[in-house]
Design a protein around this nucleic acid. Sequence first.
DNA 1: CCAGGGTCCGGAAGCGCTTGCGAAATGGCC
DNA 2: GGCCATTTCGCAAGCGCTTCCGGACCCTGG
Lengths: 327, 327
Amino acid sequence: MSISTVSRALNRGDQVAKSTRERVEEAAERLGYVPSGVASSLASGRMRNIGVLMPEMDRWFRSSVLAGIASTLGKHGYDLTLYTFASSAEQRRDVFHKFLRRQRLDGVITISMDMSPDETQELSRLRLPAISVGGSNSRRAPLSVDDVSLARLATEHLIALNHRVIGHIGGLGDAGINCDVPGDRQRGFSQAMEAAGLPAPASLFEPAEFTIEAGLRAAKQLLGRPGQRPTAIFAACDEIAIGAIIAAQQLGYRIPEDISVIGIDGHELSEIYALTTIDQFPRRQGELAANLILEDVTASDRSSARTEETALPYELAVRGSTRLLHD
Amino acid sequence: MSISTVSRALNRGDQVAKSTRERVEEAAERLGYVPSGVASSLASGRMRNIGVLMPEMDRWFRSSVLAGIASTLGKHGYDLTLYTFASSAEQRRDVFHKFLRRQRLDGVITISMDMSPDETQELSRLRLPAISVGGSNSRRAPLSVDDVSLARLATEHLIALNHRVIGHIGGLGDAGINCDVPGDRQRGFSQAMEAAGLPAPASLFEPAEFTIEAGLRAAKQLLGRPGQRPTAIFAACDEIAIGAIIAAQQLGYRIPEDISVIGIDGHELSEIYALTTIDQFPRRQGELAANLILEDVTASDRSSARTEETALPYELAVRGSTRLLHD
DNA sequence: CCAGGGTCCGGAAGCGCTTGCGAAATGGCC
DNA sequence: GGCCATTTCGCAAGCGCTTCCGGACCCTGG
């Protein structure tokens, strides 16, 4: 039995008789033989390896997406190479200009980061299919929920419950280098308020990063401010919303009797806090992203590079943190 | 200028005149040339790639360790390939018997998982240096805090505060396939209680997985049970502790007036809940693990395979969730 | 001025696989 | 049973680097 027959039997199974293939597989199993990844990559040009780029793993959303990607890629026999750049511009440059150029990847998935034109160009120069999840205005075949609509929906939920004085916490991007999800959500909020003819004064907005701690601080600011107190708060993400709930409780407010709170994400903690939220199934987003990139990679030399956005499912999950306001 | 000179100039810089090296580097920079990773791996046998194995990314501890590893490896020009197996034994088998055998890795780091003898053997058959963090009785060069001591320390803190009736929540391993951190912490608890001559009846123990939700449920069970109510709770991890705090509050208990709570980990949320805990700096553990594995990999052909355990730092962080019991 | 020793560079042989191409074998049909 | 169509297999040429080895060159000291 020749080397080439073994290779064919193990790889694609075509062009080789069923019986020989079975013999080969049996022998490989017995010897514990698995073809060397680097050698087969070098020879075939296929890496069986997808890169995942993301700013940091500090948010629940991102690690959920990552988990979804990891499990899906694993199922298909692909490796997943992880690149993070914790707010260091230099590390980020290195990823694009050193690591990606080593040509170990068949494609990349980016999580909640917008690429600069330079980076996008680099990707196409390398002829690497890419898809991004959790970014808003990425340039190549983005996979994203429409954050503006999401925020509008959340705000409309509060308005439908008769709230008129609604505060918003969020809007602080990741140091500007990443995606503009916070900005989009703020815009959605404004749109909904405007459409309902409601004012959205600056005094009812408080900036915060996407963490519980920041949400807690911001909510205290917002609620402690003299002037008209909001009867409801739209938090840009669940972490902030949970922080807001804790802050409200610490200040003596009852949720939802005194203040309604709504978030976005479907965080694992949201159920515990009975948080009304918009679930966007991040893990499933990761799985979807992985499947799409695999399709792109397998597709005969990316002739059919998808460019249209793929809309993602989301779902208003009404729990106990929002309630009708009686006037 | 010949190919071999370029290779030498880019790789090790020795055996090549400074001036030529500079010329090569300048040219590479200008052309955006970076040597193909697979080709150089195949030729040299070095992969510049470390594998990270872990059960799932669902715990804060694990993603913190991962973040530390990722940033350290990136700084040294190494790729990080991530393998997870969400409780599926088959996936886990595949990782060890397919993915690792592809020989794309220079070494592996395992996070909070114990390897079966079969798996350990597989690793040494592949001559892969390995180090594990967050596991207790791993077999190769483990890097771990002594979970028994940690738990003893936490319990002793409560005892020193005059508590005599102390409950414990935890002890539920990850379906038995992973590491025995929960068991170790339970043992530490028992040891401390016994040493202080205090009883630790079954009624004061409640099993729980390492999540906030499970902690919440378990704490309600523990506190709702008729009979002697504990004045303090030692939670096996911060997630459980936070769940316990929330549960206690929901039941109307005040923390720490009515019940003291201590956890282990140093979770990002622990400050918000004023949780007394034992910080074990997981991110730093990840960085350390990465540095050690790089040492192992670089070391002239693993002649000096470390086998002794490396003790890790930890620190009792006393916050507001524990207080002296006046009798 | 020449020998000797260093330094620096180029040639060439792989690393372990994939795959196009042609040869061999197999099977079906008249 | 012979011939063609079809399947199945082996040969060999790479894939893009690394690295051993020998040769060219330069400098120094005698």
